[in-house]
């Protein structure tokens, strides 16, 4: 299973980014191969419009099974993500990546 996190940094101890569209990084973890992959999304800060759909497109191309984030995607981004099979969990905005992963494993995060 491949899990994507919206994060402010590149490590397990980094803070989660509560924002979806303007998240700094997408942290991708494959819990079978135990591989991580970091997608740099910092360039999105320059986008005046449509940051949500743009990040959603990136996620669509990465095609993880699960997304863990803070506030959840907005309307346009949600429209894009509907085209994928992705399951979204929210409410992890104030955690570290590690904490968010445990919270998800223990079923403490809300499905969006």
């Amino acid at each position: 299973m491949r899990i994507a996190f919206t994060t402010k940094g590149k490590d397990w101890d980094s803070q989660m980014d509560p924002r979806f569209g303007r998240t700094d990084y997408i942290f991708l973890y494959d819990d079978e191969s135990e591989e991580t992959l970091i997608e740099d999304n910092t360039a999105i800060q320059n986008a005046a419009h449509g940051a949500g759909p743009q990040t959603a497109k990136k996620l669509f191309d990465l095609s993880p099974d699960i997304l863990i984030t803070g506030n959840g995607p907005g309307g346009n981004a949600a429209e894009v993500l509907k085209k994928s099979e992705l399951k979204i969990y929210i409410g992890a905005g104030n955690m570290t990546v590690k904490e968010a992963y445990s919270a998800f494993k223990e079923g403490r995060l809300d499905a969006n």
């Binding site: 419009h49 759909p53 497109k57």
Partner: peptide, 23 residues
């Protein structure tokens, strides 16, 4: 179309093009 739109109102998702009229 996807690469040209300054407002990200049009996205290529696999084989579909998604237009977001609000943007």
């Amino acid at each position: 179309c996807d690469s040209i739109c300054r407002f990200n109102s049009l996205l290529k998702l696999g084989k579909t093009i998604l237009v977001m009229p609000e943007l």
